[in-house]
Design a protein around this nucleic acid. Structure first.
Lengths: 165, 165
DNA sequence: ATGCTTGCAAAACGTTTGCACAGGG
DNA sequence: CCCTGTGCAAACGTTTTGCAAGCAT
């Protein structure tokens, strides 16, 4: 469902990053390359701390601040995408050459299901047009219960009914 | 599901809160009532600190911690809705008896446009059904440029193209 | 009377920043 | 060589928590 498009090789992505850096007069440093490498080796939805942890695990000495300063670059050039769940810390996922998708998050077990964003994207455009708004991106997230949890849990508390007793 | 579209009086909401507290064995305290009052007098999208500020302005002594402990209760019973923009702090808006809506946020000037969520809600259900997921709520946010800013700003940087130079 | 609630302050948390040094162009 | 990038630690702002005292039930 999510993988009918061609993936890019890690080298493709690294080259793209290099091009981006050059095009913007940003230096191509060892730390930035190491951070990109780590980010590419992390999957699903990772956070800044995990990048740092992976680097440490590999014996690479990169400061926390540098990770926090580099991730926005990777977002900026389209290699990563920042995803905000309900937690305070930011999460990231690969964006380069991926099909746009959104997330369903199970409130009970935290399971994350991805689904194609094409319909929502089209709907965004329609809605935006009616308000003279120029869409750059959208963020769509469904919160609820996955199949297993909806069986385990009779009913998740719904909002209060005005007339109930 | 909230099915009402008419506005409720503040008293309706306060009564609903009282019922919610009683139903859950939570105490109906002065601090909680004052926080609800303050939240009802704030409009648009406010943050915890604004609730605290309004209380102080009224000469009411309520601790910051209590505000942070009470807002989740108001969310839980459907009076408030937590909205997460790209900033770190949470925002809240009235949810009780309001028509469900989502937001468009202008990246340049921060303008927030609200629009009806009915179509997105329907789409949520369709998508969720295909994944055997039970929808409790959704969060949909369009990020881009409002009309004025799209004129002031030529073009917001798009993601890197794999083949560009 | 009981134990949930409160307020205060301090901790926790992810993230940002100031600064002196290192390293890329 | 210059200036950007780096690492460390300290600062930051929001949110959470420990605790003694307060108050609703």
């Amino acid at each position: 469902m999510e993988r009918l498009q061609q993936k890019h090789t890690p080298d493709d992505v690294k080259n793209a990053f290099r091009r981006y850096l050059r095009a913007n007069g940003i230096k191509d440093t060892g730390a930035r390359r190491m951070i990109l490498d780590a980010a590419l080796d992390l999957h699903e939805h990772f956070e800044a701390e995990q990048v740092l942890y992976l680097l440490r695990e590999r014996g690479l000495k990169v400061g926390k601040a540098t990770v926090y300063r580099t991730l926005p670059l990777l977002v900026d050039c389209g290699i990563l995408k920042q995803v905000r769940f309900d937690v305070k810390q930011a999460h990231y996922e690969h964006a380069y050459g991926e099909v746009a998708h959104d997330h369903m998050v199970c409130r009970r077990c935290g399971l994350i299901i991805e689904f194609a964003a094409d319909k929502i994207q089209a709907l965004s455009e329609t809605v935006a047009k009616g308000h003279r708004f120029h869409v750059i991106s959208h963020r769509f997230q469904i919160s609820g219960l996955c199949w297993d949890c909806s069986i385990a849990c009779p009913i998740a508390a719904g909002p209060l009914e005005p007339g109930d007793g």
